[in-house]
Design a protein around this nucleic acid. Structure first.
Lengths: 127, 127
DNA sequence: ATACTACTTGGAGTGTGCTCGAAGTCAAGA
DNA sequence: TCTTGACTTCGAGCACACTCCAAGTAGTAT
């Protein structure tokens, strides 16, 4: 799969795909005549990175994960610990957002009440 | 309330508080001898902005909200529409995170199984 | 052979959101 | 009166995560 095909398929720009590989966030993608040829393994990396990035996981953590991965089996524990820590942070962010969402809902409700009140007043003038 | 007190209370740096006011994200804070003296109204702005920023609402949207607010009652509808749109985006982000979280949970579970298997193998060698 | 297209690398540039430094003002305490 | 400390403004600088550009190469179609 060429880089532009991957770009379309996953909604990640070719520049970003090259960037991710360059900084070691995705392990080296196999080449044909120098051009990237994404295989199943590379694609699963792309998918993972896209998924984690969209959930707010930092580049730094994903770099570390890819680095550990390429060091082999002895890093299984460390990788798991990294993922668990990222999950903890993700949950914290989600709880934060939940609170903000409730606050936002409350605010919108206030506006609805305010607007309804205003409308009643206007009707009062008209009728 | 002085800027440093607000900073401590809300966990937002004084620089950031000045920045928010400067770009119009928080309406002008009353002064005493030139120094900011946060009143209840300013504090509620700080709290709102902190809450929304932490949930990923962009500076641009909050600037627009503050701008509308300062234009008075005729912008009630527009303000509500803005909040509703931000809620929509916030929900979308949360759903995205939910999916990522599930993916992460699955991945962690895989590691747990892999590690358990490895441990069984090791025990096998030992006993 | 020539042109076209899609790819390559390396490095510089961009947008967002702060964060810091310099130079100055003001009120309180020694 | 002098110093100390907290504040002020303005503008520059920084971190993160891309995004773009220039110059070059390799396979394909005419």
């Amino acid at each position: 799969m060429t880089i532009s095909e991957v770009s379309k398929q996953y909604g990640v720009s070719a520049d970003t795909l090259r960037y991710y590989e360059r900084i070691g966030l995705i392990p080296p993608v196999p080449r044909i005549n120098g051009a990237r040829n994404y295989d199943a393994s590379s694609l699963s990396w792309v998918e993972l990175v896209k998924c984690m990035r969209s959930a707010g996981v930092g580049i730094e953590a994903l770099m570390e994960y890819a680095r550990l991965f390429q060091q082999g089996e002895e890093t299984l524990e460390a990788r798991k610990a990294l993922l668990v820590e990222q999950r903890r942070q993700m949950l914290a962010r989600m709880e934060d957002m939940q609170r903000s969402l409730e606050r936002l809902n409350q605010k919108i409700e206030n506006y609805e009440q305010g607007l309804a009140k205003k409308e009643r007043e206007l009707r009062g003038y008209q009728t």
